[in-house]
Design a binder for these strands. Structure first.
Lengths: 225, 225
DNA sequence: GTCTCGGCTGTAAAAGTTTCGTAAAATCCC
DNA sequence: GGGATTTTACGAAACTTTTACAGCCGAGAC
């Protein structure tokens, strides 16, 4: 679910777009002028910005320029009125990702939004450590003392979930839901079986685990370091 | 500038709080029910959440629990109606940071908000204390003088029940019903056996308990500090 | 006040129950 | 076919309940 900031001084249009966004299960955030739109863009970090070119006070062009000057990478779609002369060079220059001419259809706007959102793939490539193990999220591989450890997809996903939830006690149900997906309930021992394999690959002594710890009667707990 | 999410089904109250927040130069975000409140909390990452305990659909309690289950650390202040019996340990357990009883004054709410915001700046804490023991509900672990104490499910549940009902004299029947579940009547000594183990783990002198106290002929009583 | 006695409680340890670890078999899925 | 995943099975380990007995408590008798 993604936040969409709509910056437009036309209240009717804002409402229309807002309703439409909600129907598509986006979360709309509204701003009626350039200045407040700019501030909300900084503060609320929307996933995408729809901004009218002509705005009272700070114009849409200035909003874009200013955001890019502040190194805000959020994709921007410019809304322009029929008469506006929109040239692609200007859009490139101000850092917009696409534009659409008013009046536009719901379907068209949504399509462009999805296209822009798709293009702006996010995700940072980083590395996590625990014990003598290093996990490279970007390359999806795991090394132990510099040597690569072969790891299956299920094991990797489970490991990721543990890495994201250190210290906490995680029930098997929670793990199944989170790692295997909703509504999917294999036999309870599935989790155990995979934990065993993580231990065999990453514990100094798999029989006396220090990272993948059992909490009897409840579930498991991952302890980094 | 800080975002405050207000989850309450009473539109009047929402408006009142909204105006008040804006006057104090917070940015209010509104939600009329638990589900949308929960979603906005995840998505818009407010700095603080005000949530009514009683809500149609997903209750305030569920909102809190779910957020904490999703590892959202945002401080939460619970709004409760006059009649509600507010259990402080329950609040701690579900991860609330403070509560305030309706109707409340602007000044009071602002003061608490600032206090909570200030607190959440430094340390974490969904924890209860008694004696030299600390119970971390989120991690589901118990430490004594900083050292983790291993605790079994039955012991943990019993401890939780005591924490929820401090000072009160609790009969064995009541304890069995509440901790072990309705209609389940093992031999009466079961409770005693577990109390013994709590004493051994958490009393300075298990033979002269000061926290888990016997009330002869009736049951037990838990005294924090 | 203090003695006495029956019932209540403390507690270790035995007995019973549940949960877990793990290899191996079965199944799934390219 | 061949690796990955899930299920099975069963011994081991952990936990819970019961047992057993010693010691404690409190009410009434004196």
């Amino acid at each position: 679910m993604q936040k969409i900031l709509v910056i437009d001084d036309d209240e009717n249009l804002r409402d229309t777009i807002g309703v439409m966004l909600e129907r598509e299960s986006f979360v709309p955030i509204m701003a009626a002028d350039g200045k407040s739109g700019f501030e909300k863009a900084l503060m609320l970090k929307p996933h995408l910005i729809l901004v009218d070119l002509r705005l009272p006070g700070m114009s849409g062009i200035e909003v874009c320029k200013q955001l890019r000057a502040d190194r805000v990478q959020t994709p921007i779609i410019v809304l322009s009125a029929v008469g506006d002369e929109v040239d692609k060079v200007l859009l490139l220059e101000i850092g917009a990702d696409d534009y659409i001419v008013k009046p536009f259809g719901t379907r068209e706007l949504i399509a462009r939004m999805r296209a822009v959102l798709r293009r702006s793939g996010d995700d940072a490539g980083r590395v996590a450590h625990f014990g003598d193990v290093e996990v490279d999220f970007e390359r999806r591989n795991v090394t132990r003392r510099g040597k690569e450890v072969k790891i299956t997809p299920a094991e990797y996903n489970l490991l990721l979930f543990f890495l994201h939830n250190p210290e906490r006690v995680l029930t098997r149900d929670l793990i199944l839901n989170s790692v295997w997906g909703y509504e999917y309930y294999p036999n309870t021992r599935t989790v155990d079986a995979h934990v065993v394999r993580l231990r065999q690959k990453f514990e100094v002594d798999p029989a006396a685990p220090t990272h993948f710890v059992t909490v009897h009667g409840v579930g498991y707990r991952f302890l980094p370091q």
